Simulated assay, not measured.
Amino acid sequence: MIRRRALGLLAPAILIGPAQAAEPGLDALLGRYAGTPADGVTRVAYGRWKASAADMAALDAWIAEAATRRPSAMPRGEAFAFWANLYNALTLKLVLERYPVRSIKDIRSTGVGLDPRQFLGPWRTRLVTIEGTRMSLDDIEHGTMRPTFRDPRVHYAVNCASIGCPNLPLRAWRAASLEADLDAAARAFVNHPRGAALLAGGGLRVSSIYRWFREDFGGDDAGILAHLRRHAAPPLADALRNVTRIAEDAYDWALNDATPS
C-alpha cells in the first residue's frame, strides 16, 4: 500500500525550493534528445540517448537524487512538479534500458507475482524508493498524483512514451510556472487530432484517455465535452458547441521514437 504521508502537502502556494535545484540537469537531457516536429507530437531520440553512456548515467543520477527528496514536505505545486518529473524520468529510463522496442507495452512488469497486469506493460514494476516506500509508475500516477491533486491536468503532465499520449515536456516541470504550463499542455493536446477530432459524419473522436479516466473529466460524456471546450481553440471550440456525445475513442501505443525502425 502506498504510504499516504506523501499526500500530506504543506500549502497550496507555488514556490521554488531546493528540491528543484537538479531540474536543469533534466532540462539538458530533454533538450538534447526530445523535440517536437511539424506534426505536433514530441518524440525522443532513444537510439542516440542510449548510445551515450554519459547521458544514460546522467539520467540515473537525476533519478537517484530525486529519490533523496521529501515530497511530503513540499508545497503543492512543487510536489506536483516533483512527481510528474519523476514519472517521466522513470519512463524514459525504462524505455532506454530495453530499447529498441516498438511500444512501451512490449515491456512487461516484473516482481509482481501472478498479477495478470504484468503483461500489459511496465507500470506495475517498483522502480524507486521515495520516503521509504518502493513505488511503481502506477503508484505515482494512480496512487499518488490523481488522488492527491484531483486535477485532470495530471494526464497532460505524465508521459507514457507513446504517440497517443500528451507530449513529453521539453523541459522539467517547475512550480513557478506550473499552472501556465499545465494549461498550455492541455490546450496542445485537446487541439491536436489525437486529443479530439471531428469525424466526417459529424461525430467526435477523442483520446481514449478521456474514456479510461472519465471520473477525472466529469464522469460522463458531458463532463469530457465540458473539459474539451474549456481548452479548445477555434475552429474546434466552435464545432464543439453542437456536440452532445462522443462517437468513439482511440489511442496509439506506438513508441514516440524520433527514429522508428
Rank of each mutant, 00 (worst) to 15 (best):
R174W: 10
A172F: 09
A239Y: 05
A66F: 08
R69E: 11
D257Q: 08
L29R: 02
L29K: 04
L86Y: 07
H231F: 15
R117P: 03
E78G: 09
I140C: 14
A239G: 10
R211Y: 03
V41T: 10
R117C: 03
R4S: 14
T244P: 00
E23G: 01
W62G: 04
E215N: 13
P71I: 15
L92D: 07
D27G: 04
Y210F: 15
D151S: 02
V101N: 08
G202Y: 09
A200W: 04
S109C: 11
I209C: 07
T244D: 06
A176L: 09
V190F: 10
P18R: 15
W49D: 04
L199T: 15
A186I: 11
M1G: 14
G143C: 05
L168G: 05
P71V: 15
R3G: 14
I2Y: 13
L127T: 10
D106G: 08
L137F: 03
G77P: 06
A58E: 04
I16P: 06
A11T: 14
M145K: 06
L7K: 11
D183G: 09
L127W: 00
G132V: 01
V112E: 14
A161P: 11
G31D: 06
Q20I: 00
K50Q: 15
E141N: 14
T42R: 02
M135T: 01
N159I: 04
K93N: 11
A79V: 06
L198K: 02
T68W: 01
F149P: 04
G195M: 09
P116Y: 05
R153Q: 04
N159Q: 05
A161C: 13
S109G: 14
S177E: 13
P122A: 02
V41F: 00
A197L: 09
